[in-house]
Amino acid sequence: MISENLIVDRGVSAGDNWITIAAESAHEALSSLKEEGYRLLVFLTCVDHLADSSREWPSRYELVYQLRNMDSLEQLRVRAFVDGDPPHVDSVSDLFPPGNWDERETYDMFGIVFENHPDLTRILMPDDWVGHPLRRDYPVGGEVVEFSEEHETWQTAPDKA
């Protein structure tokens, strides 16, 4: 059983149960949850809360682990808040094999460093890519659409577009 002192907060969001744990204890908490029966890591991802004024956030990055117990059909979302540049957290790919690629994707897209990951390299972007595209301060990119508002500013001041 996951000990209560690992849980920082708990609640329900749109019908989904969730708990918050401290990022330092992520590996410990997830391994005890695995013992408890949550043996499938459905997905692992990150949310960037940069400049989100709708709620109070303890830190900029929120790691989300969606777990499932395939026998009792229970689902649990585990949140862990991390900060820093780059943020560090322990890898759980030894507990949950599908976490391996998910962690590589999260590293690629958000620049979160997973300690003890067997092969933490970029997975979707080219190896020499600079930046982490899904961070909120990374521009969407692409090209300026003609006749749009951005196009007018771009025409007058190409450096500021």
Binding site: M125, P133, Y138, P139, V140, G141, G142, E143, V145
Partner: peptide, 12 residues
């Protein structure tokens, strides 16, 4: 032209 995806990942 890049279609509906006007973003960093695709060649426009």
């Amino acid at each position: 032209t890049g279609g509906v995806f006007n973003n960093y990942a695709l060649l426009q």
